[in-house]
């Protein structure tokens, strides 16, 4: 076996860093390209794509594309819609799925294994399969809103939120996490007189930080990237989310600079959300390896 010297340790480190930088670059370059292009007029943008200049803020740099994007489409409204739909769905998903997982893991009731298996089985059903039946149901559901009782959920926020609240993957994440919590903690709380609701609220959820962050980020990404479903159920501009809004830029007078500006803008909420939760997210991934 070769002796490990200071030299070849340095070399190994250098190789390791080189590989990591390369991988990071593969992920970052498209984002840099998007951001840089958003500041360039179309002609220069297309010319730069054949050189490394595509990744640099050089040439005729301005915020022109951003102003044009706002003129072409109600960008602010689309971002608002997406953030609202995504935010409310994430919150309700965390609440409903954690409560469901709590009941599966801690409360003894007849048939829970069967029900859990059935829920997990939904993970293998692609959304496209149920999209049409879901559309038919949504188009007939009653809603009691500001206009009184109405029927049909099309063109609304709730049609983009409610079908996605209960979600097998999120329940599964919570179930796995709850199973690793020491059972004696829950028993101790029960002996102390806590009801199931109090055990959930005061003992289990305060300890669920890492899984809450993971589930929130995964759900956020799924919801923020929604395209097919809103395309099917929303015809009115007022309820459109960002991904459907992208269509506005592929109609007449396609302008790549504006598209890049729009894409840069709609990436901001994702980055902001990730930055807020990244510490907890990384902690939860790390904790799966070094539990206890």
């Amino acid at each position: 076996m070769a002796m490990i010297t200071a030299d070849n340790r340095g070399l190994r480190l250098a190789v390791r860093y080189a590989v990591l930088i390369l991988i990071a670059a593969i992920f970052v370059f498209p984002l840099v390209f998007m951001l840089m292009s958003s500041f360039k007029p179309d002609q220069q943008l297309l010319r730069d794509t054949s050189s490394f200049a595509a990744f640099l803020p050089i040439g005729d740099i301005s915020l022109e594309n951003y102003f044009d994007a706002f003129k072409r489409a109600p960008v602010g409204l689309f971002i608002f819609n997406s953030v609202l739909v995504t935010g409310v769905t994430v919150l309700l998903t965390l609440l409903v799925c954690s409560a469901a997982a709590f009941a599966f893991v801690f409360i003894d009731w007849r048939g829970r294994e069967l029900v859990l298996t059935a829920i997990l089985a939904t993970l293998i059903v692609p959304f496209e399969t149920i999209a049409i039946p879901l559309l038919l149901i949504a188009s007939k559901l009653p809603w009691f809103g500001l206009d009184g009782l109405t029927f049909g959920w099309l063109n609304s926020y709730q049609v983009q939120i409610v079908p996605f609240i209960a979600d097998g993957l999120t329940i599964f994440l919570f179930v796995q996490y709850f199973k690793d919590l020491p059972g004696e903690l829950i028993e101790a709380a029960r002996v102390e007189g806590a009801t199931w609701g109090q055990v959930y609220r005061r003992v289990v959820m305060p300890l669920a930080g890492p899984v809450l962050a993971t589930a929130a980020i995964l759900k956020f990404l799924v919801m923020y990237n929604q395209y097919l479903w809103p395309l099917m159920v929303v015809q009115q501009e007022g309820y459109r989310p960002v991904m459907v809004g992208l269509q506005y830029f592929f109609q007449l007078n396609r302008a790549w600079g504006e598209i890049m500006a729009y894409l840069s803008l709609i990436t901001l909420p994702v980055l902001a959300f990730y930055l807020v939760l990244q510490r907890a997210f990384i902690a939860s991934i790390a904790s799966t390896g070094v539990k206890g």
């Binding site: 101790a188 029960r190 002996v191 300890l207």
Partner: peptide, 20 residues
């Protein structure tokens, strides 16, 4: 009767004190 109505208190092997 549920545990809370039995006039008992329990000390567990793992202590089971709430970490948060």
């Amino acid at each position: 009767l549920p545990p809370k109505d039995r006039s008992i208190a329990m000390v567990f092997q793992s202590y089971a004190i709430f970490p948060h």
